[in-house]
Design a protein around this nucleic acid. Structure first.
Lengths: 413, 413
DNA sequence: GGCTTATTGGATACTTCTATACAAAACTCA
DNA sequence: TGAGTTTTGTATAGAAGTATCCAATAAGCC
């Protein structure tokens, strides 16, 4: 007896998940590549591919790839077959967006964020904002494929919770996924913002780099580890917490965390702002620091370069421990360009053994404001299209399509 | 047309690799577990399993597991179906062994090692030693399944070469795998000894820990990273090189590597021996240090504890960066027990955020001399039985068995 | 000992996938 | 323009795997 789900009337769809996964992840984007990658026969691949194209999930793109003979048609997922709802929770605002499967932003909005409101209130505000974006997106982009949240705190990814004390009082151990499941009928993801920025940078610009280290130098300092092409999270999801590594020395500055001499207290945006303030400038955070840097104030340049050396000190530890082939420096301070980078490079090349540095690249991230949003979309995208879970997506999609031909416009609120 | 290989006459063997892999890796060790894990039907599993048992690769063990009804028979690979040749290259000696698939040592030998001989001479000596061990092993343990080498230097695992300048002059970039392929017709592996010790410790005692950090504190200091259950090697295979992380401070000691203030120059066995010598003791290496510790010499105890604090300093960096759930301390200095461990614990708990330490365990490794050998065996074992490669093994094994006629002439077919 | 439970083996009809061959399509290059 | 090359589609027979039913087996439990 066939399964009692969306694939019931389409036998060829039953096992087509593998094909969809290969296309979505970019592992195989032509019919012949699919043949090789899947190990299936041409008959089977053709059959399943046609079924997928029929559902609208996959389409033939206009592009072709030269082969010597008849060029191969490039396949891709139809970016408009579904959409994600993503949110980036910042310090004082929340950035919401509906994103297609490219991923690209379809529509977006911003709402104020008050950390003291607690999770239930803020999640309700986010959900309300999502509802508005979803109503628009549903008209042009099919159904909701996933919800993905970027948090400015450590997150236990598996459990979908903020962990450890942080600026977000009341969020610690709050069941975010559980709460959102009550409002949205789709897979839900919660992840730390730095890991998402690292994901975006990797997928967008360095997809073929196996081991990458991403440093976010902003008001605070954090990092994301890409090991074997995947985000490495550690036991509690706290991996990459380089901001509070301590260096012992005399007159170690006091950190926000209560310890002395943390990296962040020496090189974070707030620490540089602190030092600039004591020299008579007005600066509170990383953005203020960068403004002064852009005005070419010598004190700001000097302090930024010196911050680079501090970050370079941790970076050299990381290089010794992880031996990445690429370090990407992002965050607000990265807008300071070479003034920051040169200090990092200096320390890494000074301290690390040549074996680890001879093929090491240290570069700036693309300054992009929505990096965490894109990372959040990639996270959802890749999980949803992963081998074990695609079949669910296919079911979901075919059922949704079977329902209304959706011509009549308005959606009630 | 059937494949023209060892499985030609046994159709049921053709796709039985998955079954074998599941059993060998311990993922599924009973018939019902195999059914679930493989997703195949019982008929197919039974058929393939029988084929595997017939070849002698798999056998039913005497053990059973209670189930409420008829207990399930526990399956396992037949440890005597094949053997590995493994070698651990030390500073002045090479430890050779033939190991079964348990893995357990079948027979062993030791030959002197002279680093200045160069790779060709030493590899020839190793191969000669292997030949003797193999001749014995072949009589009782089937055919050679793999050759695995443990090196006291950084190794680029993928390319099978020693990389970076080290104590082993002439070995840098020498094609070890290529050389050994001329002598042995089996897969060949070369890996750094610390990674192998970490592998052994993980597989033997902490198989279900995902993220583990292994510190080898001996004459030198190194480490092995287990991330997601697998050894993490980094871009050049140089990951885990914590011995040469520098701490800036006044009167930083000079390291063997030419830099100032490396961890090894502060806390390595040779550094403690150096400090003990300057206090009138006779000590050259980690073993000498431990002898003095075992004699309860206060100076030795003090220096060991202080070395623990230095190691703890790097360990705390590692905890911040990787967030492991377990740190295992091995190597000769670990024989100093709590005197070493307490210093490590002290610094880690002092420096790291509670989130990262609240479930962190810091323990001593089992003091076992052959740790690297076992690690080398596990390395070969797991690769050979991995999903993509088992089929080759089956071919190889069935051909080998078909060749030497045990009784007389032809096998009925 | 009988009852229950769960594993294990085997036979059958049926579904799914493959191998193979042939044909058409779409590009390059001379 | 036509030959060469590779991709793509489809029909067919046959191989491989599954579902299902029935039966035997080996424990624990009362």
């Amino acid at each position: 007896m066939p399964k009692t789900n969306g694939t019931a009337e389409r036998p060829a769809l039953v096992n087509s998940g593998e094909i969809l996964s290969l296309i979505a992840t970019g592992t195989a984007t032509s019919r012949s590549a699919l043949l090789e990658a899947s190990g299936l026969s041409r008959v089977t691949v053709t059959q399943r591919l046609n079924a997928l194209i029929e559902t609208g999930l996959v389409r033939e793109t206009a592009r072709t790839m030269p082969s010597g003979g008849r060029p191969t048609r490039v396949l891709g997922i139809n970016e408009q077959a579904g959409f994600f709802l993503v949110a980036n929770i910042g310090e004082t605002y929340i950035h919401l967006a509906a994103m297609d499967l490219e991923p690209a932003i379809v529509s977006q909005s911003t709402i104020p964020f008050n950390a003291s409101d607690g999770p239930a209130v803020s999640l309700a505000q986010i959900s309300d904002g999502f509802d508005i974006l979803a109503a628009k997106a549903r008209a042009s982009h099919g159904s909701l494929f996933g919800v993905s949240l970027s948090m400015p705190t450590p997150v236990d990814f598996k459990r979908g919770r903020v962990v450890g004390p942080s600026v977000l009082h009341g969020w610690d151990e709050f069941d975010i996924i559980g709460w959102l499941r009550g409002r949205f009928d789709a897979p839900i993801y919660v992840e730390n913002d730095v890991n998402l920025m690292a994901t975006h940078e990797h997928r967008q610009n360095f997809r073929h780099v196996d081991d990458m280290f991403f440093i976010k130098a902003g008001t605070g300092i954090g990092s994301g580890i890409v090991a074997g092409g995947k985000i490495f999270r550690g036991a509690q999801g706290a991996a990459g917490d380089i901001g509070h590594i301590q260096f012992s020395s005399e007159n170690a500055p006091l950190c926000r965390c209560g310890k002395l001499g943390c990296v962040e207290a020496r090189a974070g945006g707030w620490a540089i702002a602190r030092d600039l303030s004591s020299r008579g400038f007005t600066a509170e955070n990383a953005r203020d620091v960068i403004s002064l840097v852009e005005m070419q104030k010598p004190e700001a340049l000097m302090l930024l370069r010196s911050a680079g050396r501090v970050i370079g000190e941790v970076a050299s530890d990381v290089v010794s421990i992880l031996n990445p082939s690429l370090i990407v420096v992002g965050g607000t301070l990265a807008r300071g360009g070479e003034f920051l980078l040169s200090g990092i490079r200096e320390l890494v090349y000074q301290r690390c053994l040549p074996l680890a540095t001879r093929e090491l690249q240290i570069v700036l991230a693309n300054p992009q404001k929505d990096s965490a949003l894109f990372g959040a979309a990639y996270l959802a995208l890749e999980d949803i299209f992963s081998l074990g879970k695609v079949e669910q997506l296919i079911d979901r999609h075919t059922i949704d399509r079977a329902r209304p031909p959706s011509q009549s416009g308005a959606i009630a609120g």
